[in-house]
C-alpha cells in the first residue's frame, strides 16, 4: 500500500460541489472530511470523490453518513463517486453500499 497524502479539496463545478478525498480517513482526519462535506452541502448538490482513499474507518464512514442525512434533510443530491476498493469493503461491512448513491465518475454523478 502506497502512502497517500491525506487530501480533502472541494471544487465548485457550477452548482455542483465535488469533494475530493484522498489518503487514510481515520479518526485523525475524518473530522476535516466531515466539515468539508457539510460546508459543501450549504451550496447545493454534493459528490464525494473517493478514488484515492487508501483506508477508511468507521469515523470516516460516519462523516459520509452524516453528509447523506444532511442532504436528505435539505432536499439535496448526495453521491459517492469512484469509491476505491477499501471504501467499498467498509461500506459493505456497514451495509451502507445499498444506502448511498454510487457513481463511477463525476459526469455520471452530475447527470444522475
Amino acid at each position: 500500500m502506497n502512502a497517500v497524502e491525506n487530501t480533502c479539496v472541494t471544487e465548485d463545478l457550477g452548482g455542483y460541489a465535488l469533494v475530493r478525498v484522498g489518503g487514510e480517513v481515520d479518526l485523525s482526519w475524518s473530522q476535516k472530511v466531515r466539515d468539508a462535506i457539510l460546508a459543501a452541502l450549504r451550496g447545493g448538490d454534493v459528490g464525494v470523490e473517493l478514488s484515492r482513499v487508501a483506508y477508511i474507518d468507521s469515523s470516516g464512514i460516519a462523516a459520509l453518513v452524516e453528509g447523506f442525512q444532511t442532504a436528505r434533510g435539505k432536499g439535496r443530491r448526495f453521491a459517492l463517486i469512484a469509491a476505491s476498493k477499501p471504501v467499498l469493503a467498509v461500506l459493505q461491512l456497514a451495509r451502507l453500499d445499498k444506502v448511498f448513491v454510487l457513481f463511477a465518475d463525476v459526469e455520471a454523478a452530475r447527470a444522475g
Binding site: 474507518d57 464512514i61 460516519a62 462523516a63 453518513v65 451502507l96
Partner: peptide
C-alpha cells in the same frame, strides 16, 4: 440502521 456513529 443508518446512523453516523457507533459503528466501531
Amino acid at each position: 440502521e443508518c446512523k453516523p456513529g457507533g459503528l466501531g
